[in-house]
Amino acid sequence: MIRYLYASDLDRNGALAAGMFRDRTAQFRDRMGWDVDVDALGWETDAYDRLDPLYVIAEDHRGRHAGSLRFLPTTGDTMLGDVFPHLTGGGPIRSPLIWECTRFCLSPTADAGVARRLLLAASEVGLAMGLRHSVAVFDAPMVRVYRRLGWQPDILGTDAGISAGLWTFSDAVHDGLCDRAGISPQQSRAWLEADLGHLPLAVGA
């Protein structure tokens, strides 16, 4: 199952939140060697977690954190705009139709299906919210992983092994991601609506 939770919803989902922030430590500090802040509980958090972002969280069959990512609208403060504007044409990209996706994280025990479910869930957010694009910053070699998963970004810029990428939302991509994840479009939408309700925002691409 996929959950769609704001930071302000995490109190009511304590175990899931703890799993996510600890798995982020395991991925970003331990496996990738990034210089990130980890607190006394072993949770990796940054300034953007304090902006009440929307987390997309894939649960395993026992309801534990299997993988997650984080969305913020580019009209507000974003990591790309604050830290990597040189990767996006020399300044921040800002639009209500474009959200930034960060902290794509897989639990150490996640199987291959989790990444596919997360990409599908990201696409679900875009279509449900009437967005056109998502932008994200990632380790440059990850582009091959995204290609294999069936949703390749356009590269906006690369510097020192870090890339900014652009994903475009569309019904065609979404259907493909549903097939790869083995989840029906109806099921995918139902999970989103269970947390966020029905949104009359979907627009044609």
Binding site: T74, T75, G89, P92, I93, R94, S95, P96, L97, I98, R132, H133, V135, D154, L156, L166, T168
Partner: peptide
């Protein structure tokens, strides 16, 4: 030397600003 999707994003961001 960018994709049309990328161009669209720069135009959309400029439109908003």
């Amino acid at each position: 030397k960018i994709s049309e999707h990328t161009l669209r994003v720069y135009i959309e961001s400029a439109r908003f600003k």
